[in-house]
Design a protein around this nucleic acid. Sequence first.
DNA 1: GTCTCATATCGACACATGTCAATGTGTTAG
DNA 2: CTAACACATTGACATGTGTCGATATGAGAC
Lengths: 90, 90
Amino acid sequence: MAEDFKALADPTRLRLLSLIASVPEGEVCACDLNEPLDRSQATVSHHLSVLTKVGLITREQRGKWAWFQVAPDRADFVRSILDQSAVPVS
Amino acid sequence: MAEDFKALADPTRLRLLSLIASVPEGEVCACDLNEPLDRSQATVSHHLSVLTKVGLITREQRGKWAWFQVAPDRADFVRSILDQSAVPVS
DNA sequence: GTCTCATATCGACACATGTCAATGTGTTAG
DNA sequence: CTAACACATTGACATGTGTCGATATGAGAC
């Protein structure tokens, strides 16, 4: 259980999760996540991997792009987390 | 906001919070927290300090004892966190 | 096949964190 | 005042973590 919170305990990861959760389409290409976070491609990829490993988001490869979305079974949890208070995104 | 989750991201701290939240009286003496956590007195004190600093619990000195309780304004948050799933206490 | 692009992984670094033994601080008992 | 107790703080250590540049991997385009 602490693992979930560990994944949420980094500001970059919180913004990442907030970005993914806030797109109307429900999924985002990794290529759109590098710039707004102001982190290197390697770092963003690392954080996406952490969030995926704990099951908060899911990854799907389509062609050369990787698409991420909030894990359907964790959507309620993620929403309640992000609604906790205003999260500064970007 | 990540600060809150950082405080929750350690198993020892989660058990500590769960212990404090679960006493019927609503508050616990630090002296009752050492043994069930199987950590040194210094370590428990450190974790209590972390939880207090982020405002999840409050500390009150009464005589030589320090009493802790879940911060009243965070009680709902803490309850929702701990109810998230069964937390193994002790 | 080769080239290019999107992403993941590796190696290294600085820094944060959990832990304990030892010591400090403040309170009560005598 | 002195002693004992409850707890906090300090110092040290090992381990974990965020970050990046460099490199590897895998997929489409040619």
